[in-house]
Write a protein that binds this DNA or RNA. Structure first.
Lengths: 205, 205
DNA sequence: TAGATTGTTAATCGATTAACAATC
DNA sequence: TAGATTGTTAATCGATTAACAATC
């Protein structure tokens, strides 16, 4: 164990472990090993053990890891021992789909508001939400102390929307717009662009 | 230059460069440097030069890279000098959103068919598509020689659908189901799971 | 020419793997 | 106890960065 700085690449694997553990847990399985887990997620057993051991000794020699215990630890490490309020910015098709997505609730996130700047969309209902005006976004974010946002605006609007989010105090942005966005160092961004992901694979075809 | 095996991590950055170049090109810009490009995408200039130089000498000392020329080269490397037919499997909210997404066409992908196994959805119209029965999927994939699929089924159906895709000859799967899927070595998978991506960031909050 | 920027080398830094003592 | 599996070390492997000669 060592609580120095943990590489980002390790942090990136923890949610994958957690997801697999949740799945095993749903199947009523109580215990797993680095070997088992590795086969499920496609990562070597040695790496899984090394990753987990960065945070403590959560396993037992001979028997492996208690799934509920390891999940609790991983959740706590990832700050998933609470529910995070999230906003969705941009009510196009993807924004709609995410507003309806029921996979957030039981995995630690709660969509609390959705925004758009199109007068035709503002005030309309999407799923359980009324679409709010982007003009009021900074205020609303500050009011609710929102730290996490999902960006589903067109590429042309992405940087402008990002700047608003940053100004309001958002520290984590999941960006569905197909463009790189610039943020201060203390703001994290993750990119979801179907085309970019597809292009990563066509090289090998 | 060296045409040995190129690391996957480099291949993964090329689509990001390409996307940024497209954007510069749309703005009428003809030339860029590793410095410029690096600032846009948040990657060091040295790394960009090194990545690009794996494939040839595409720049000019003193002036940098011709954007049209570099784009052409990157497209060719990524096999984006053609249009790839893609199918979407699973017509839930995300499948719907992707079926309507107009960002595929001008970036090298063409959605050719969409599938679902729900009798209520089969035969219905989604965007420009008629929803086809998953039961006919293997046959249709073989017939059209489809190599690329987008998987937007529920987690519980993901492995089964994957097995069908693999059996039919699909070699690249963009998986939106929140679960790790197992495929043979010669099949590539990219994962898109909003929750996993969000959890990668909450650690830092 | 002078200035700018590439492509590439060598050095550094970081991540992964293999192996095994410890121990449940 | 015997078998299994962890946590950790050392070795290997790979990626990034800094620096600069080459050259446009």
């Amino acid at each position: 164990m060592a609580t120095e700085k943990i590489p980002d690449i390790i942090i990136g694997r923890l949610p994958i472990y957690l997801r697999a553990l949740q799945r095993l847990s749903d199947q009523g399985i109580q215990t797993t090993s680095s070997q088992d887990l590795g086969e499920i997620v496609g990562i070597s057993a040695a790496q899984i053990r090394k990753d987990i051991s960065q945070f403590g000794e959560f396993g037992k020699q001979g028997t492996g890891y208690s799934i509920p215990y390891l999940m609790e630890k991983l959740r706590s490490i990832l700050k998933m021992d609470r529910v995070w309020d999230v906003i969705i910015v941009g009510m196009g098709d993807i924004g709609h789909a995410l507003a309806h997505y029921n996979g957030f609730a039981n995995r630690g996130f709660h969509v609390s508001m959705v925004f758009d700047n199109d007068p035709k969309k503002i005030g309309q209902t999407v799923g359980d939400f009324r679409v709010l005006d982007t003009a009021s976004m900074i205020e609303k974010i500050k009011q609710h102390k929102i730290k996490v946002a999902v960006l589903t605006v067109p590429a042309t609007a992405a940087q402008e929307a990002t700047d608003l989010l940053v100004k309001a105090g958002v520290k984590a942005i999941l960006n569905y717009a197909p463009i790189s966005i610039n943020v201060p160092e203390d703001v994290k961004v993750q990119y979801v662009d179907p085309v970019t992901h597809l292009q990563r694979m066509t090289y090998y075809l």
